[in-house]
C-alpha cells in the first residue's frame, strides 16, 4: 500500500502545484466581481442608490444618471444573489435611499446559475467554499482559468465594468454580415415558460423578491422594481399568461415598493444590443427618464 500511496503522491504532486499556482494567479487578476466587491467594501457608506439585477440591469441602468449610484448588477445574477448581496451590504450602506431592481421576463425563472456561483463564492464571498466543489476554485475550470491569464497578459485588464459598475464593451451577437443580431426568436423561446411546469422556480424567485422587499422596508429604503424595456417583437412572442402573471406578481409589491412597467418603453433595434438588452447610449436616456418618473411618483 505504501508503494501505491508514494506513486500516487509523486504522480499528483506536479498537478497540485500547477493547480495551486494557477489558482493564486487567477484569483489575483482584477475582474468585475472583485472590483464590485472591493468598491462595496470601501464605498458602501456613500451609496444612495443601489442597482441590483441581471444583465439587462448591468447594461440598461446608467449609474451616472442617478444620485450616488452604484450598479451592482451582473450577468446571470439571480434574485437569490441579489438578496444575498443586499443582506451582506445593507448594514454598511448608511446613506442608502433607494434600491432599483430591474427585471426581465426571464427573471422569475432565474434560479441561481451554477457556473456563476464560483464568482460569487471566490470574489464576493456570498457562499462558502465548503463543501468543496467545482465552484470553490477557479483552477477547477482550467480552460477558463488559462484563458483569463492569457487575456490579462495580452490586454492588462479583464474587468468588464466601468467605475460605477455598468458593463463596458457588450456588443451582443453579430451575424455573418457583421450586423447586430437581435436574437428575437432565440430569446423569446429561451425566456418563455409554462407557468404550471415552473411553479417551484417562480415561487422561489417570488420568495426572494419578498425578502428583498422586507429588507428595504426594515431599513426604510425605497425599493423600485422595474420591468425593463424590450423589443415589442420579442414581447409579442412570449406567452400572454406569463406576462400577466409576472405583472400581477410585481404589482403585488406595491405600495411598499414602487413598480414601474417599462416593458413598452419605445425601442427600436438600433437602441439595443439584442431584444432584451438596451445599449449603452440608450441606457442614459432610459435611466434619466426612469429617475424623473420615480421623482414624480414619490413627490
Amino acid at each position: 500500500m505504501r508503494k501505491l500511496v508514494t506513486k500516487l503522491i509523486l504522480f499528483f504532486l506536479p498537478l497540485i502545484v500547477f493547480a495551486v499556482g494557477v489558482e493564486i494567479v487567477v484569483e489575483n487578476i482584477p475582474n468585475s466581481y472583485s472590483y464590485k466587491s472591493n468598491y462595496m467594501t470601501s464605498h458602501a457608506a456613500d451609496i444612495k442608490t443601489l442597482v441590483l439585477g441581471s444583465s439587462n440591469a448591468y447594461d440598461g441602468i446608467c449609474p451616472y444618471e442617478l444620485p450616488n449610484c452604484f450598479n451592482l448588477a451582473n450577468s446571470g445574477q439571480a434574485l437569490e444573489d441579489d438578496y444575498r448581496l443586499l443582506s451582506m451590504y445593507i448594514d454598511s450602506m448608511d446613506s442608502l435611499k433607494m434600491v432599483i431592481l430591474p427585471l426581465g421576463y426571464h427573471s422569475l425563472l432565474s434560479s441561481q446559475t451554477m457556473p456563476r456561483r464560483l464568482y460569487y463564492t471566490v470574489y464576493m464571498h456570498l457562499y462558502s467554499r465548503w463543501p468543496l466543489s467545482q465552484y470553490s476554485f477557479e483552477a477547477y475550470d482550467m480552460q477558463n482559468a488559462l484563458r483569463k491569464i492569457k487575456e490579462y497578459i495580452l490586454t492588462g485588464d479583464i474587468t468588464r465594468c466601468d467605475s460605477l459598475g455598468q458593463r463596458l464593451y457588450y456588443e451582443g451577437t453579430v451575424d455573418e454580415n457583421g450586423k447586430r443580431d437581435m436574437q428575437i426568436d432565440f430569446l423569446s423561446h429561451h425566456d418563455s415558460f409554462e407557468i404550471t411546469k415552473k411553479r417551484d422556480v417562480i415561487d422561489s424567485c417570488a420568495n426572494y423578491l419578498h425578502l428583498i422587499d422586507s429588507i428595504c422596508q426594515r431599513y426604510n429604503v425605497r425599493l423600485v422594481i422595474v420591468q425593463m424595456p424590450v423589443l415589442s417583437q420579442y414581447k409579442a412572442q412570449l406567452p400572454v399568461e406569463q406576462i400577466m402573471i409576472q405583472d400581477s406578481l410585481l404589482r403585488s409589491f406595491t405600495p411598499s415598493a414602487i413598480y414601474i412597467n417599462a416593458s413598452e418603453w419605445p425601442l427600436s433595434s438600433k437602441d439595443c444590443y439584442n431584444a432584451t438588452h438596451i445599449s449603452d447610449a440608450t441606457s442614459i436616456s432610459f435611466t434619466k427618464e426612469l429617475y424623473e418618473y420615480i421623482i414624480r411618483l414619490t413627490h
Binding site: F11, M114, P115, L118, Q134, Y140, D141, M142, Q143, N144
Partner: peptide, 20 residues
C-alpha cells in the same frame, strides 16, 4: 504509461470546467 495517464488527467481537467 504515465504519459498516457497525464494526458488523460489533463484532458479531464481541461474539459471538466463548469459544464460537468
Amino acid at each position: 504509461s504515465f504519459i498516457v495517464y497525464y494526458v488523460i488527467v489533463f484532458a479531464i481537467w481541461w474539459f471538466s470546467g463548469r459544464a460537468s
